[in-house]
Each structure stands twice: as C-alpha cells, then as structure tokens.
Design a protein around this nucleic acid. Structure first.
Lengths: 213, 213
DNA sequence: CTTGGTGTGTGACAATTGTTACATTGGCGG
DNA sequence: CCGCCAATGTAACAATTGTCACACACCAAG
C-alpha cells in the first residue's frame, strides 16, 4: 500500500474522530477500491460483505422498484459510509438499493465481520456508526420531504442545488434523460422545467451540461 | 410496579431475544407510560431523553414540514422501538418528526443515558438496536416506494391494508379528513377514491368507519 | 322532534404531470 | 464536409390530482 493511501485513510478517519489505534486496525484490515464514474459499488444482488467508506469522490444511492422505476435517495461524500450496508450485511438480507459512483471515487472497504467487535471496543466507532445512521435517516427524511411536499419544478431545482453542493461545482454534466431517471419522471417534463429555470435566470443550459447561477 | 407489568416487559423483551440479565436491568431502570389513542408520545420540540419500547398498542410516526403539511411514515408495533429517538437523543438534535398513539398504548421508557453502555455490554442489545435501525430503514424505503411509484388510489389502498395489518382488525375508525392528512392530500380526493374502492367491492364505508373486505 | 355541527358525495373546473409525436440542434466519425 | 445519432425543444393532448362550491346525511345535544 502506498504512503499516500495510508495518509488519505488516516486523514479521512481523523475527520470522524476515529482514535489512532482503531485507525491502524482499519488500515490493516481493509482494502482499497477505485471506481470510475458510473461504476456500480453495490447492487441489489451483490454478495459483497464489505462496508465502504468514501475516501475521495462521490457515490449516489438509488432505490429501484420491481417495475424498473428508479429514484435518487442521497449522496455519500468523503468520510461517509453506507449505513444500509451495515444492517443488510448483519442481517444477511438482500439489498433493496444500489450504490453508484457519481464521480471517480476511492473507497476503503472493510469486511463486515469486524464491525461488531469494533462497536464493542471503540467508543469512537460506536459514534461513527450511529452518526452514519443519523445522517442517513436525515437524508431519507429530506428525500421524503422533497417527494411529498414539493412540486416537480421545486424538486428539480433542489436536486440541482444538492448536486452542486455535493460535487462542489456549479457545472452538472448530465442529460435531461439522466436527471429524469433520478427524479422518476420523464425527459420531456425535465426539459420543460429546465427551460423554465433558464428563463428565470437560475441556470444556463448546454448540451450534456447545466450550469447553476 | 405490578406483576402484570413485569411479566409484560419480560415477554416483549423475550420476543427480541433480550437476555434475562439485561431484561432485569431494563426493568429496574425504565418506567411505564400509558398513552390514550391520539396522545402525543414524542413531538419535534419535546425534550424527553427517553427511548420508548412499545409493550402494547400501536404508535404512528409522522413527518411534518414547516408549512404544516404532514405525512404518515410508519407504525411502531409491540416490541418495536423508535430508532430515530436513539440517534436524535445521542446527538442532542431537534427531532424532525412526531410520534402519536394510534391506539391506547402501553410503553416502557428507557433513559437514553444507558444505551451506550448496554450496546457495549450486551450482544443481544446491539442486535436489538441494529434490528430497530434496519426495520425503520425498510419502513422508510417502503414509504418512499409508495409515494414515488404509486398513484394516489393505490397508495390509499395500500395505506388501508397496512393499517389493517398493523392494528389487526379490518375496521378502520377514521374520517376521510384524517386519512387525507396522513397521505398529504385533500379530503375530496380521498372521498373520491374511497368511493371508487367501494364500487370495486374492496371496502365498505360508514360514518367514521371503513371496513376492508 | 328540531337543530347544529361534522362528515360525506358530487359536479365543475384549474393546475400539474405524463405521453406521444415530431422538429431542430450539436457534435463526432468517416 | 457529410451524415448520423444522441440530446434538446415544443406542441398537443391525456390523465391525475387539487380546489371550490354546495348539497345531503348522520348523530348527539337540547
């Protein structure tokens, strides 16, 4: 393992106030995983019993129904982990979601078998896990709020702002079709509402690209 | 404390495979709380630092937005606990939901201060807490599925079936207005769709009462 | 039995979202 | 430069959901 990687892991774990001793364990037990933008990290039928921690980049968590419909739930940013994989793996249940790299990303994969013992041994790890749950719960509620209380135009704008916030750039490289999929609506509706946002001066549009003002 | 109460707590905790020693601790530390149907257990501004376990009855968890809109998230049945109160209390955050008794209910309230130590000491409690998270996550995803992928008529019917399932009776004592609030729609829409369900022979309607066929 | 308040039924219409169809544009590979 | 394909723009229309108005039914209190 390169020194850079080691530093990166320490740095990310440090931000979550993981104690050095635990950081060493995590470092010695986990493995590095790189994913290209668009690559699948976890799919409903994947068997991987590992919990991913995002070192660099951005993951997105999506929900799918049986009919093929899809909706974006939330992003996982640097330092965050997928709370759902924890419980799913512990329970051995089938995953009801999938995780896709939104950008080229670097992950640190930890076998689930160690989770229980670390929860017992390290207060900082308990905090880490509970924090993960809390944050995910908040994100889910946030998603519910958007879907339930907002009309599509507001939902779309909020989606763009969230994406800007998460990726740290005002440029969004997506087609209307992709956005429509993430909001579970149709391309035509997205085009219509984006045009409206453009007229309101909130965005500018180009081919395969949207810029937030 | 009555012997009946003691038995009830043991019985409910036993179902979750809580080990006897922990059950004794929970019994000695917690307190009984009775709520009448409609009574509020947790509100966004409540300061209570206790985690409720449902001994008998049925609680419902609702989400509210700033504009006063509301939506039903899920029920808490016997043996279940409110995962959100755990993280909220640990984080000391403001609660973004409220919990209301759907039926007359009996709860066992546990001060949050003991949670961390029990998580360390008892494997069965770790399982209990993680199970709670898992179940709540599933319920949230279920709610999202309904809201995102279903039209209002299917959502309504699913709501009625869920309520039947949770309460264990095919009789639902609610007004159209109340149902409309839980689904975040209007009374007129609910009346319209219920009439349709009645014509399809799926339900029968009376004043303040719906019966599921 | 009357009365008043709440709950329900229904029509008419508005607003939002979904669907289909087709025109237009932009960029890449030959 | 041409041709093709993917992406976007737009009109027209359908379906769903939301809103307003008002009639009617039920039930409990007087």
């Amino acid at each position: 393992m390169s020194n850079d990687t080691e530093d990166l892991v320490h740095q990310v774990l440090g931000r979550s106030e993981i104690e050095p001793k635990l950081a060493e364990e995590i470092l010695s037990i986990g493995r590095l995983k790189k994913v290209k933008a668009g690559g699948v990290v976890i799919s409903p039928d994947s068997t991987g019993n590992e919990m991913p921690i995002v070192l660099e980049g951005l993951l997105k968590v999506m929900r799918q129904d049986q009919a093929g419909g899809e909706i974006f739930l939330y992003f996982l940013e640097g330092g965050e982990t997928c709370a759902m994989s924890i419980t799913c793996c512990i329970e051995g249940k089938k995953k009801a979601f999938h995780v896709v790299a939104e950008e080229d990303s670097i992950l640190w994969m930890i076998p689930m078998t160690y989770i229980d013992s670390w929860v017992v041994k390290y207060k900082s790890f308990r905090k880490f896990v509970f924090d993960a749950y809390q944050t995910r719960f908040d994100e889910m509620l946030n998603t519910i709020d958007s879907v339930v209380f907002l009309k599509m135009d507001q939902r779309l704008y909020k989606y763009l702002l969230d994406k800007k916030q998460a990726s740290g750039t005002f440029v969004i490289n997506k087609t209307h079709e992709q956005i429509a999929n993430e909001l579970n609506t149709s391309r035509v509706v997205v085009s219509r509402l984006l045009k409206q946002l453009e007229r309101e001066g909130k965005i500018e549009q180009y081919r395969n690209r949207i810029e937030i003002m």
